[in-house]
Amino acid sequence: MSRIAEYDLPPELTNAGLGSDNNFVLDNQLEVMTPENIAFQHSIAGPFQRVLAFGFDIMITQVGYWTIVAIFAFAVIPLAVTLFGANNFLAEVLAGLSIAMVLVGSFVITWFYGAYMETYYNGRTWGKMVSRQRVLSVDGSAINGTQAALRNFFRAIDLFPVVSPSVFLGATGLTEVYPLPTALVGIVVMCANRSHRRIGDLIAGTMVVVEPVRGSKAMLKFDDPRVARLAELIPIDFVVDHKLASALSSYVERRHFLGEQRVAEIASRLAPTLRHRFGMPSSTNGDLLLCALYQRTFLEESDEGGTVSQSTDEVSITEPLISETSAAPAESNNQEGTDESV
């Protein structure tokens, strides 16, 4: 087997540029490398998940705002009037201050609600708590107050263009009061970059991830007795490497969601090679074979074999099979070897 001598390629033809960012996004999963050298994946929140959270935040802030209004209108002002009398100087000043507080409250809520919540609640507003999202720095660490303030200030640009509701409803007196942000700028920018960051996120260096626990920690069990029977026919010395293991588990975890014919089609990619190695007849059910190999790789517990001596017993039972198939792996190894040399 002759090795081809490595020579230097121009940099644009190599992998060098790929990992230059310390994190990159594939399938909405962002790989984060922590300072402790642990790599794990975050799921990025998409535009539509974030619109939901934002909608909830709007609801919350509106409720908060109208609560302030109600407190002043129905509690503070009537109380002042009953205490001091309607035309009293103090009552008038209090009434004026109440309206001032409502206006200041509206200003503070609009510009600082998100910044405050995200600073003090570890990157979450109420909307994000409900929809299980969190704001993080792009390197995966927690955000600080500056980032929270910036990304919330620049939401004003993300909500552009602002149109008058009269575009949709026709001119009435009320429609002029409530300008309607369409958020087209934010949505277009979010769709145009891979980690779905709006302009505020780009400026503050943040991203939004979803947190609910994915995947499953339970093992799949097979009720079908044929799987166990077929598993016993798989040679005991067959070692499943990690690539095959991950392919097997991905297949078995997904096959419930696929139709029968699709399952057969996908199984037909991998099953013939395995049948050949195990020396099984070509009529063996591919799906069952993959399930059996899954069972062998992940599930079969040692209590089936129990002690070492018992497991050697099992070998003796399947001995004829092994002797028959022992040639097959060697043969395929040769084949691989020739493939490489070609």
């Binding site: 794990f40 994946q41 799921s43 600073t119 969190r134 995947g215 991950s246 588990s249 992940f298």
Partner: peptide, 24 residues
């Protein structure tokens, strides 16, 4: 040799715990 679903679970578990450990 954990199955893919379990690895995915571990990724999300570690991510979630990481976000609690490193707070704003």
């Amino acid at each position: 040799q954990l199955p893919a679903g379990t690895i995915e679970y571990l990724h999300s578990l570690v991510a979630k715990a990481h976000n609690q450990l490193y707070r704003s």
